[in-house]
Design a protein around this nucleic acid. Structure first.
Length: 1063
RNA sequence: GGGCGGUUAGCUCAAUUGGCUAGAGCACCUGCCUUACAAGCAGGGGGUUACAGGUUCGAGUCCUGUACUGCCCACCA
């Protein structure tokens, strides 16, 4: 071995990853700069921005690995590839985490410390976790352009958010509405549907009746109904029956009395489809302000929306004598009072679903509260997109984009998820009663309609000037005024509308709220007196306007990710070149929340879809089949895997397991810090569950990994801590690293690649780059080159379809099976022979060159390291005139093997010839093995083959000789079986391995094989005797079956002949 | 409740429009420390494709139903 081949015998990822990272940093390898539109090709992957709530787990690792594979692949294909990094502020999630922590450590709530202080604390948290996340991404080898890191709350990003809000506001797509929201009475905030989970609890089903007013003679005096939530009866405004229900038809329009009030509240009996005649009495109470279905009924029937709840979850002044009670107290009181009035008929036990807030774990209440919404449905006069196209509505625009395949979704089945959800066209509630996020850029003030008009018309009042002077730059603000009878909105014609107002304002004394939406926080009052330099915001606040305290839903900002990161709303070079992007790679859970919204906002704001493809990848599950998540505490830190197996092994394994249909199960093990033994996490959970049971604890749910703090090592019996343990426990016991033996696959593979390269390096130093005549090459050379070409072509095909697992398997098979196990083994002897070895060395160098290029997107570190070694030892590589890949100092920027393969090398015929030789080789090896002959022992072989093949086989004999340790191999069309030979039949050939068997053994073996072949023959004969098969199956299939039968018959003939000779 | 998946070797997964003897890796068995690699090499055993029907010359693959199981969405007066 030459001195400059200083590679360790075993691949050590730690130092290699460190060195290669330095190299890439130094060379600015991932910097993506815009090129010439139309001339240069762009490839853009936007990272699905991780939340700064916590650090990344393996679920992110697969996501980012798959993104990086695509990015690196395209970069090597000559695209200007941008992999955009960044993080999400993740509103509710982050605020909740920090709040919880503050409460645990200091016993203070957010109200104790105040808005500014809480936000400051969250920024600190963010700084910490953003750094950790970016560090994790770097260590995983993600080739992001690190100069471009963005955060959804940074200043420039906030400009994009305001711009979007402003445009939607101006177009009337953002509106203020009273809506039922999921109200968290503990956090005093609305939470999104997806932040609500449902608990099953044991509840009751109360059957009550309300008395009828003016009950018809002889008719019913009361109307029965049932409820699981009696306290909401305080908000009842009607009873509903089904219009088709004959029992109640006569009562529709009559009045019932709600006797909990004094005097009793009178309510109509209405007909509405919501009432199901099959359920209960067929009569249902309607509480529009506290139930989503009743809300719809209320809208349809023009019922009052009677809110009976305070934000804290108590009964408000609408609740009469119940005001001030909490909802549970009100429930008891209502039931008691109804019972006292003899209006309670019966109580059933019923398991009811209780919606709970994911954040505070307390029950949520449907609550009527003012919120901001984005209109998703179709609008009357169509929406104008940024490119001028008109669409019926935002949701429809996004549906159309998938329908006509401007956006292609892989796998195809997820189109349905996307379209079904958008098809509902539900308006999007974008306001959140939180402190962490983009505060809504709207200031408001109450005033009378008269005052409003006066105020705007007053030339000395700034907003009037704003509107009047500002037409060219209306950009800065839009004013809408909403009252019962009028509404001003829009930009160009707002001024006109305003002036029309004084003529026909119907009720100018009515109070209205004036909302002013600010486009940019730093916008100045354009009053011709610019020297004052007062900002609009300051001006508004000086004039009694107050900013909306709410912040925007976190998805409002993340939907802008594909262009906000590129400088939008400024028309930057980046935006021009890198938008639209190429592919979005993400998990299936955010197809609706994120993907759909990026498409619709991309269309609206840019006139183009944000990406061509969407690839949805499998989920990583733990050993029990649960998805990995922070809240379950079963997420494994990729750093743990990188520490135990290396980043490339992590990536290799992820790609290898990434199939089309199947989620990825990842059993987790702790590595005992004392003895290094592995302890199964699932088993540790069982032990913990037992421990708790024996302590008399009741376990409602199965335990989560985060519930386990201490584990006894099953090998050394010593105790260790998990990463979920309290700090004191972590200090007392040592914390165990988590791992999974799944990653052994990747680690083993890296080691193989490492060692194959070491072998090559020992042989190829200074190898030339001479013209080669393929036709005169030895069979194995032609074969490996044909396989290489084929592999390159197939690799492109599969990666193009996002078939990661198939792609990496192709590569693996080429490298390990073909190159290592056959080609290198075959050429070892040649390599040592200076003269004859030259060609083999050149081909080996070329193959290694190609293998490293093809593997690089999957395993960037190890391949980059080996690449520099290869460059040092054999700087010129290729087959002149046939295959001449461009040289490159850095593999990360090297040219990828061609999409069509190396067509000059694609000799399909040789592949079949070689396959036969492999069969013979295996047969000899098998016979030796079965007869207890050591692999290295040399044996003689006789092959009996059809006369036509004898010459060719004789010529190729050396392949079998070299690989199966064969001394002499004689090939003939006829020969006697040498005494004590082991016999095998391969196709039309008979293989005798001399002197390794005895007749008795051989007879038994042959009989067994004849019977096995016989079974196959029977099957084939039956099939071919079948009229239907022969007449209906395609001719090629039938012919193939005939050929196969013929060869089986030959084989049996040969076996039987051998057998009879033995006897 | 609606939708989308899954159920194939002991384990984790493949199997391109229905068509060679249903394939890999891990684990297991046998033999090898053969000068790149024992994280390796050479061989081997192991499957009534969840169950029940149906379509077809032919079904892991298509259809119907059942049973588990996972995810997404909606909702339960």
């Amino acid at each position: 071995m030459s001195d400059n081949i200083a590679l360790e015998k075993v691949y050590e990822p730690v130092s290699v990853e460190r060195d290669v990272t330095e190299l890439w940093d130094r060379e600015k390898a991932f910097d993506a700069d815009p090129g010439d539109v139309g001339k240069d090709k762009s490839f853009v992957v936007m990272i699905p921005l991780p939340n700064v709530t916590g650090s990344l787990h393996l679920g992110h690792a697969i996501n980012n690995t798959l993104q990086d594979i695509m990015t690196r692949w395209h970069r090597m294909r000559g695209f200007r590839a941008l992999y955009q990094p960044g993080t999400d502020h993740a509103g509710i999630a982050t605020q909740a985490v920090v709040e919880r922590r503050i409460f645990e450590e200091e016993g203070k709530t957010r109200h104790d410390i105040g808005r500014d202080e809480l936000v400051r604390r969250i920024w600190e948290w963010k700084k910490d976790y953003e750094q950790r996340i970016l560090g994790q991404l770097k260590r995983m080898g993600c080739s992001c352009d690190w100069r471009r890191v963005r955060f959804t709350l940074d200043d420039k990003y906030t400009d994009s958010v305001h711009e979007t809000f402003f445009r939607w506001f101006a177009d009337g797509l953002v509106y203020r509405g009273e809506r039922l929201v999921n109200w968290d009475t503990h956090l005093r905030t609305a939470v999104a549907d997806d932040e609500v989970y449902h608990d099953k609890i044991q509840g009751h089903f109360w059957h009550f009746k309300y008395p009828l007013k003016d009950a018809p003679a002889g008719g019913p005096t009361h109307l029965g109904f049932a409820t699981t939530r009696p306290e909401t009866m305080l908000g009842d405004v009607a009873l509903a029956v089904n219009p088709e229900d004959d029992r109640y038809k006569a009562l529709v329009g009559k009045t019932v009395l709600l006797p909990l009030f004094d005097p009793p509240r009178e309510m109509p009996i209405i007909a509405d489809e919501w009432a199901d005649p099959e359920k209960g009495t067929g009569c249902v109470k309607i509480t529009p302000a506290h139930d989503p279905n009743d809300y719809e009924v209320g809208l349809r029937n023009d019922l009052p929306m009677l809110n009976i709840m305070t934000p804290e979850g108590k009964v408000n002044e609408q609740g009469g004598k119940y005001a001030g009670l909490t909802f549970p107290e009100a429930r008891k009181a209502v039931v008691a009072d109804m019972e006292a009035m003899d209006l309670l008929e019966k109580v059933e036990d019923l398991e009811v679903d209780l919606p709970c807030s994911d954040r505070s774990k307390t029950p949520i209440e449907p609550y009527l509260s003012p919120q901001w919404f984005v209109r998703m449905g179709d609008v009357a006069e169509k929406i104008k997109l940024a490119d001028g196209a008109r669409v019926p509505g935002l949701a429809q625009a996004a549906i159309d984009a998938v329908d006509d395949e401007r956006v292609k979704i892989f796998p195809n089945r997820y189109r349905k998820t996307y379209k079904d959800w958008l098809g509902e066209k539900r308006d999007w509630c974008i306001s959140r009663q939180l402190w962490w996020g983009h505060q809504i850029p709207v200031w408001s003030r109450q005033m009378s309609g008269r005052e409003f008009v006066q105020w705007f018309k007053d030339e000395s009042a700034k907003p009037a000037l704003l509107i009047g002077n500002m037409c060219p730059d209306l950009a800065t603000c839009v004013v809408t005024a909403s009252g019962e009878n009028y509404q001003i909105a829009g930009t160009e014609d707002a001024y006109e509308q305003l002036h029309r107002l004084d003529e026909d304002v119907p009720d100018v004394d009515e109070l209205c709220t004036c909302y002013v939406c600010i486009r940019r926080e730093d916008a100045l009052v354009p009053d011709g007196d610019a020297a004052s330099g007062e900002t609009l915001i300051a001006w508004l606040e000086r004039n009694g306007f107050e900013r909306d305290p709410d912040v925007l839903d976190t998805w409002f900002s993340s939907q802008l990710w594909p262009f906000a990161t590129l400088g939008w709303p400024e028309e930057t070079k980046d935006l021009e070149f890198f938008y639209p992007g190429s592919v979005l790679i993400t998990g299936r859970d955010i197809i609706t929340l994120w993907v759909a919204r990026m498409v619709l906002s991309g269309l609206y704001l840019r006139g183009q879809v944000p990406f061509d493809d969407v690839y949805i990848h499998p989920k990583i599950l733990d050993g029990r089949g649960d998805t990995m998540s922070k809240s379950k505490g079963n997420g494994v830190d990729p750093m743990d895997i990188i520490q135990t197996h290396g980043a490339d092994a992590l990536r290799y394994t992820m790609a290898d397991m990434c199939t089309e249909t199947q989620d990825i199960r990842m059993p987790v093990e702790y590595i005992c810090p004392h003895c290094g033994g592995l302890v199964d996490q699932a088993a540790a959970l069982k032990v913990e569950a037992q421990r708790r049971k024996s302590r008399g604890e009741k376990l409602l749910d199965k335990l989560r990994p985060s519930d386990v703090q201490r584990v006894d090592c099953t090998s050394c019996q010593k105790e260790f801590a998990t990463r979920w343990a309290k700090e004191a426990v972590q200090k007392e016991l040592t914390v165990a690293v988590e791992t999974s033996d799944k990653f052994d696959i990747g680690r083993n593979f890296c080691n193989k690649l490492w060692n194959a390269a070491r072998f090559a390096f020992m042989n190829i130093e200074g190898v030339g780059c001479e013209p080669i005549d393929v036709s005169t090459l030895p069979t194995e050379d032609k074969w490996i080159l044909a396989q290489l070409s084929h592999t390159s072509k197939r690799l492109h095909e599969e990666l193009g379809k996002y078939h990661y697992a198939i792609a990496i398997k192709l590569l693996r098979d080429f490298f390990w099976d073909a190159l290592c196990d056959w080609y290198i083994e075959l050429t070892k002897a040649r390599m040592r022979d200076g003269e004859k070895g030259a060609e083999a060395k050149q081909i080996l160098a070329f193959c290694l060159d190609q293998v490293l290029r093809m593997f690089h997107p999957f395993m960037p570190y190890i391949t980059e390291r080996l690449w520099s070694q290869l460059n040092a030892l054999a700087p010129t590589r290729g087959l002149p005139g046939l295959a001449e890949p461009a040289a490159s100092d850095l593999l990360v920027k090297a040219e990828f093997p061609p999409a069509e393969g190396w067509t000059t090398l694609a000799d399909e015929g040789i592949v079949h010839v070689f396959a036969e030789l492999q069969e013979v080789t295996r047969a000899v090896r098998d016979l030796k093995n079965k007869n207890g002959v050591a692999t290295k022992d040399v044996v003689d072989v006789t092959v009996i083959a059809p006369a036509a093949d004898v010459d060719a086989l004789t010529a190729q004999a050396s392949i079998v000789q070299r690989l199966a340790n064969v001394g002499t191999m004689s090939v003939a069309s006829e020969a006697e079986r040498p005494a004590n030979s082991g016999t095998a039949v391969v196709g039309a050939m008979r293989v005798y391995v001399h002197g390794i068997s005895d007749d008795a053994k051989e007879i038994a073996r042959l009989e067994k094989e004849i019977s096995s072949v016989g079974k196959q023959i029977d099957g084939k004969e039956r099939k071919l005797a079948n009229e239907g098969f022969v007449s209906k199956a395609s001719p090629e299939i039938v012919q193939a079956e005939r050929d196969r039968l013929a060869s089986l018959l030959d084989q049996r003939g040969a076996l039987e002949e051998s057998l009879s000779l033995l006897r």
